[in-house]
């Protein structure tokens, strides 16, 4: 809402394409915006909705008509111009809103949780649609979402915000594999977080095992002392209890889900560790079994303890 100009930021500047927009009102920013709940003008036809921004820019009626029809074609709604918004489905309405936001070729397209009102199938279809438009039109899209999967699949770069502060801005892969702090690590996807004692070279679990970590495990320098070892559930595997180099754990629950299985285990101190493993080709385990957990060294990340 700050980028669009509806709220004044308390601090910092908003610069779009080299122009400082911090104090510009929304109507002077030339930004395309798609809202959460379509926000089509109910008393105007679809074509008039799409042509509205052109009207505001003083473009002639016939030219408006032509450009609006072209924009509707882009969102695959050619020929729907004479209908009223209420006569369209939710997905179609959101596509009209999209057409309205791109019809005047804005510098930036802002989308504020545009798909959260749609059901799952429609949402996936619209995700592809927006990606297609993005590459076709070549404009910058700022896409706000609470859906982590949506963020990973759609974005070239993802920014994580917490209480108005940027936590991390990076490509999806980097964000998932090397999140810059514990909040980012826990925000996207699942993450096991194990309390450890760090001595500068080795991390010691509460129950005693010592793990030698490679240098790149720490994303920011970690001072010796209490720290957190983070591992994605799909990077862990298990072996027979007592195997050298494994961490002793007890199986608490086995959740079979077709292709994959979720294993919920706990370490000696009660810390829960989740494993996501392929269902096939595994030695079966059941709740109560003692096993040993293993993890490739490059999959382990070390963070300073939160609040430390």
């Amino acid at each position: 809402m700050s980028i669009a100009g509806f709220e004044r930021p308390t601090l910092g500047k908003i610069i779009i394409d080299g122009v400082d927009c911090t104090t510009l009102p929304p109507n002077k920013r030339n930004i395309g915006m798609v809202f959460q709940h379509y926000t089509l003008f109910p008393h105007l036809s679809v074509a008039d909705n799409v042509a509205f921004p052109l009207k505001m820019r003083g473009i002639s009626r016939s030219e408006r008509r032509r450009q609006a029809e072209a924009a509707l074609e882009t969102v695959r709604l050619a020929g729907y111009g004479d209908r009223m918004p209420k006569q369209l489905s939710g997905g179609q309405q959101q596509r009209v809103a999209l057409a309205r936001a791109i019809v005047y070729r804005p510098r930036v397209l802002l989308m504020d949780e545009p798909l959260s009102a749609l059901d799952k199938n429609l949402r996936e279809e619209m995700q592809l649609e927006i990606k297609r438009l993005h590459s076709e039109l070549g404009l910058t899209v700022v896409f706000v979402t609470h859906d982590q999967g949506e963020a990973l699949t759609m974005a070239d770069r993802i920014a994580i915000l917490k209480a108005g502060k940027l936590q991390q801005v990076s490509p999806a892969r980097e964000l998932y594999e090397r999140p810059s702090n514990l909040f980012a690590a826990g925000f996207i996807g699942e993450m096991n977080m194990l309390p450890v004692e760090w001595d500068g070279q080795r991390a010691r679990l509460v129950q005693g095992e010592e793990i030698v970590l490679p240098d790149q495990a720490a994303i920011t320098p970690v001072t010796p002392g209490p720290a957190v070892l983070a591992v994605r559930p799909e990077r862990l595997s298990y072996a027979r209890a007592g195997t050298a180099g494994t961490w002793a754990a007890t199986v608490r629950d086995v959740v079979y889900a077709g292709a994959g299985t979720l294993l919920i285990t706990s370490l000696g101190d009660g810390t829960e560790v989740r494993l996501r493993i392929p269902s096939a080709g595994q030695e079966p385990v059941s709740p109560g079994d003692a096993i040993g957990l293993t993890c490739p060294p490059e999959a382990m990340l070390l963070y300073p303890q939160e609040g430390a």
């Binding site: 669009a4 509806f6 929304p26 109507n27 809202f35 926000t39 005047y104």
Partner: peptide, 10 residues
Amino acid sequence: DAAMSCGASR
């Protein structure tokens, strides 16, 4: 808000 983002004054 939508109208304003389309370029309309308040």
